[in-house]
Amino acid sequence: MLGKLLKHELRATARIMIPVYLLLVVSACLFTLTMFLADAYDLMALDIFLGLLSTVFTITLAGTLVCNTALMVYRFYKNLMTDEGYLMFTLPATVDGLICSKLLSALIWSVCTVLAEALALWISARGVFVREGLELIFSGDWSIIFNLFSTGQWISFILQAILALALSTSSSFLMFYAAIALGHSFANHKVLLSVVFYFAFTFGLQTIGSFLSVFGIVFLATDTPPLFLSNDPAVIVQVVLLIYLVTSLALVAVFYVVTRLLLKKRLNLA
């Protein structure tokens, strides 16, 4: 059932995301083409057009990221909390299936967005000016960083970082879902309350994060834990990654349970 839900979710979101990606790639191509032309012909009109396209390209890059997040949050709201919820919650599917299909779709599109942004940047990097800038950045000696860890350690860290990123992205979407589900469990002002709860969650997490950071710094400064004694950067990276992984996993669990509980026990379709 999850597969079917995911299939329909991807179909519903693809009709927006695919044109957005096309727009991004087209704007990258136009930007790069204009860079070639501006380099070949010394025309003021081309320089002005290049400046304009560079702004459009930057906005499209940022807009694609915003569109990805906004659409995934809107889909959860529209498909489960408005009239469409009457269909979705009467399908022979579990609440877990409904939440997971939304979350998996959001993660898949987030990966696609990263790939589309990378492609757009790669296309723009073919252009003369961007290429020169990148060559300048990468002309330095990067071997110090590459030699910091062994190949095995690099692979392990990259895999852990990908997992941490996936968990962190999941917790971000689940925080939106939990806020929407909580806001919609009330009789009135559902959307407004959802926004209020989202900001309350953000504020709460920042407060807890600040408190734990201060506590951690004091602890590290006054005690002599192994992390501080170690001169091995791999140990430090490993500890930081573990803290990030555990924190993200805890947030995923908390927001998932809150969302699930509210949709199962306090569903309140208008």
Binding site: A12, R15, N79, D83, E84, G85, Y86, L87, T90
Partner: peptide
């Protein structure tokens, strides 16, 4: 098989 009083079909 449930028919609610609202239109629950996605408009797109």
């Amino acid at each position: 098989s449930y028919l609610p009083e609202r239109t629950y079909l996605s408009r797109w």
